[in-house]
Each structure stands twice: as C-alpha cells, then as structure tokens.
Design a protein around this nucleic acid. Structure first.
Lengths: 217, 217
DNA sequence: AATTGTGAAATTGTTCACAGCA
DNA sequence: TGCTGTGAACAATTTCACAATT
C-alpha cells in the first residue's frame, strides 16, 4: 500500500502530467481502451521515454507489451493531481481579468469552483456575477473561512497584491494563483504560482527579435 | 561590434531577463544609478551567480568592483527582449478572456499595441471595444496584413483554435500567444506560447494534495 | 513481438570559486 | 577592496538502451 516515491517530481513533470491528463481525455473520447507511451508522446511532441519516466515517479500503471489502460491511467493521474475532489476557490479583484475568469468554463470542468468574489470597490460590492454576490474585501478573512476556501486567485492591481496575499495567508489559505504582474513574497508553506501575461508576450518579442528560426541558431 | 553569443540562452534565462527588466525599473524608480548582481538577486530570491551568468549570455554590461549601471542595463535588456520597439498585436476572439486583455494596461506599457480585434460572432462584429471595431474573422488574412500584425493572441474556444492558428501562420504572423486550452500544432518557424490557466490551478491542486510543505518532502 | 520500467549515459541548467579589473 | 565574468564542478533533467513481462 505504501507508495515508495523516492524523488520529488519536478515542476515540469507535474506540468506534463496535466498534459497527459488532457490527452487521455481525448484518447478516451476516441474510444481507445489502451494507449502506449509512444502514442501519448506523439500527440504532444514528447519522447516515449519521457512519458514513461514521468509516470514511473508515481507507480507502475502500464502492462509490458500492451501499454496503459486509458481510463484507469486518466483516473490515476486525476488522483495524483488532486482532481478527484472539488476545490473551493476565491477570486479577489473583480476587474477585467477577474470577470473573465468567473465565466471560464475550464475551471469548473476540472473541479475548481469559484465560491467567493471579493473586491474593494463600493460600486462592485453587492453586485451579482454569475450568481455570486461580490463581498467587501475588508471581510476577507471571515469570508475565506466561511467558504472553506482552498485556493485564492488574485486579480487585483499590482500595488495591492502583496497586501492581499499576506491577508490570504493569514486566513490559512495555502494555494495562490496570482495574476498581478509583481513578484509576491510568501511564507514557506504557501504555494504560489504567478501568471504574467506580459512576460509571455516579451518572450515572443525576444524570439521574433533574435533573428533565428525556432530550430537552429 | 559583432556579438559572439555562443550558446542559445534557455527559456528560463529569457524568463529571468523579463524579471530583471521589471526589477531594474523599480531600482531605477528608487533612484539608484548602480546595482550589484547580489542586490538584483536578493530582490527575486535568485543567486548573484545566476544573474551574472544570465547577463553574460548577451555581453558584459557591468563594471568589476562597481556593479551594473541601472539605466543602461535596463535599456540593454529592453533591446535584447525587443521592447525598444512597438509590436502590432491582433486579438482573435472577443469573449471573456479576450475582452479582459483589451483593457490590460501592462501590454501597452511594454510596447504591445492591440491594433486589431477579430471574431466570428455577427453580434460582436462591428461593435466597438476601447476604440477598436471588431472585424469579421473571415477577413483574417487581409486584416492581419493591413495592420502589419506581428503577434496574434488567440482567445477563441478550444475547438476552433487550431484552425485559427493555421490561418494566422498562413498570413505570415510568426508570434502566437494562445489562451485556448489545447495543444496547437504549428510550423517550425512559428513561435507559440500557450497559457493554460486551468493547468496552473492543477499544479496548485497537486501541491496541496501531496501533503508536504514546499520546502521538504 | 511489443512495450513497460529503470539504471546508466548524455545533456542541460545552476552554482562555485577565482582570476581580472576598477 | 568589491564585484564582474567565466571556466569548471555540480545538480537536475532528459534520453538511451535493455532486461523484464505479457
């Protein structure tokens, strides 16, 4: 029963696990019962060895000579990623980005349920977005606790993001997805991921500037 | 004069370059004329050696014993990242995420100018968003060319994203930022970056599930 | 015959440590 | 003395190659 995971999987392994999870959903929809590491790899331009190595961090899910059972592997990965439960999510900052995320279907689909909206703008507080009433950010700690929030999405302006993440941690929330374009300082026990859309564009800008093709230099 | 860059910098180096660029803006705002790799590193929880190694891919910008000239280094990095010019950006898909990006200040601030909006919904076509009229996606190729678009941001539903990226490439656009939650296939000469917000949440979900603190395992 | 699971090899990325310069 | 720039050492990640299994 005891899982003997020796090494901590890298962030890239986790990332690819999410990728495999999506591919498996497709493979399953297409009616396959079994899939090889080769097939899985081809669909994402990875190597079969990479796929097998990634999966081997978590156990032996395949059958030699046959491949992996599609449905079972998808379920195993879902469990590893924690997608077998629902997560209560709070969205802090109901501006442009925040509003967009409220109607982002992909979240609910994977079990992330936005249960709470917070803002500091009196004109927004009390307003209804997709059935949720925007609460006053001054009630942050109370509201996070009442709704048993697991993950906070921060979509406030850059200059207030640090103060928000401090409060969020204070309320015991350990998962934070930050969209504010700043580097936030967090306690060691908090998991923070920052999505900086401008930096993605800057990466493209770099590629287009260094006059090279993606392949060679 | 000839730049003797021997190795191609890694994606992480480019990513950190964007980070340094932001830190330098702050350092400059705070009035410093000079900054050491140590100071730069501390502000982002990196090592001084990492900072120096990253910068050394592109040249020698510092002065031994003194550090780096803040303004000059910021400008050098801007040039490397291609932020010394403006980029014409098209936004394809004026839904929730698309609309949010139209008013996303951070883009304009770094020289990314949204010049064109495209959609396939007759109710949206012709409507005005922040001074831009939504054009018919059937005119995609013509419009991309007329506006001399460098980068396309794809915010259409997952099932139409591949068709859009094919057309975008066909029109000669080589930079693509994709928000649709699918793995797009592109030609070798196209630079594609995909932002999958659900996958970020899944990473947090994984961290919160594997009962460990971020530090040890 | 086909395909997994995994040590070992190769490659890539990070940190060290110090020569060289202001 | 202080700090950069960089080759060498080290660490992490990916790929290889093959024994094990169906």
């Amino acid at each position: 029963m005891a899982k003997s995971r020796l090494k901590k999987p890298s962030d890239s392994t986790i990332h690819r696990l999410s990728v495999y999870y999506r591919v498996l959903q497709n493979v399953e929809r297409e009616g396959f019962h079994t899939v090889s590491s080769k097939e899985l790899a081809q669909r994402e331009k990875l190597t079969p060895a990479q796929v097998r190595k990634d999966l081997s961090f978590f156990g032996s899910f395949g059958t030699r000579g046959l491949g992996y059972p599609v449905r079972e592997l998808r379920e195993k990965i879902a469990k590893i990623l924690g997608l077998d439960k629902t997560w209560n999510v709070a969205l802090i900052g109901v501006g442009n980005v925040g509003s967009a995320l409220i109607s982002y279907k992909e979240f609910q689909k994977q079990g992330f349920e936005i249960k709470l909206l917070l803002d500091n703008d009196q004109r927004k507080i009390g307003s209804n977005h997709k059935g949720l009433i925007v609460k006053d950010v001054r009630e942050l700690e109370k509201e996070l606790k009442v709704h048993r929030i697991d993950i906070a999405i921060i979509t406030v302006p850059a200059n207030s993001a640090q103060s928000i993440v401090d409060q969020v941690q204070g309320a015991g929330v350990r998962g934070v997805l930050n969209f504010a374009p700043v580097n936030l300082k967090t306690a060691d026990e908090t998991y923070l991921r920052t999505e900086n859309m401008a930096m993605e564009l800057e990466h493209l800008s770099f590629c287009l500037t260094s006059n090279s093709t993606p392949v060679s230099d």
